[in-house]
Amino acid sequence: MPTDIAPGFVDPVHESQTTFRAVLDALAEPGTIRPIAGVATAPAPLAPTAAAVVATLCDFETTVWRDEALATPAVDAWVAFHTGAPRVADPREAGFAIVAAGETAPGWETFRLGADIDPSTSTTVVLQVAGFGEGRRYRLSGPGIETTREIAILGAPADLAARGAENRALFPRGIDLILASPTAVVGLPRTTRIEEIA
């Protein structure tokens, strides 16, 4: 384990509060872009925004899984030191999952999907993307959206709409997605219908 672990939040109480409210607003109003400051010192390839989400929500009570691209000693040490969260090798045991990029994201069904009797135990997936406002365009609908809302995502999985349909069919089970660009977060909870605009 490296001994030179990079710093986390400078002001943990208030930075985690503002990050949480951005994530809450993102999931409550899917498709809205919520800027967050992020943790600038987070070790690459962990994005500063994804790092802030993890530092805000994870602790010794949550299990964390990260994909191969994030499996560096620096990232593992940073997450372990700043959250104390136990790391799991099996995504089915993950309370939170951090995925480095959309192109290499594992299928949502490989994560914990929750049970009908307690659907809240499913994995929250923090997926790093390249940006919002460019890339593939999607039309979203569902709770949190008055009619429909459009969003463009650069670096989402190519089959995001199909994954969303499969995930939504499981309702009330299913994963919840927090997309983290270099500057902002967008929420795609299990309730959101995702349609790709050709």
Partner: peptide, 8 residues
């Protein structure tokens, strides 16, 4: 709260 929002 986040899970509650995701499962209205």
């Amino acid at each position: 709260i986040l899970k509650a929002v995701a499962i209205p």
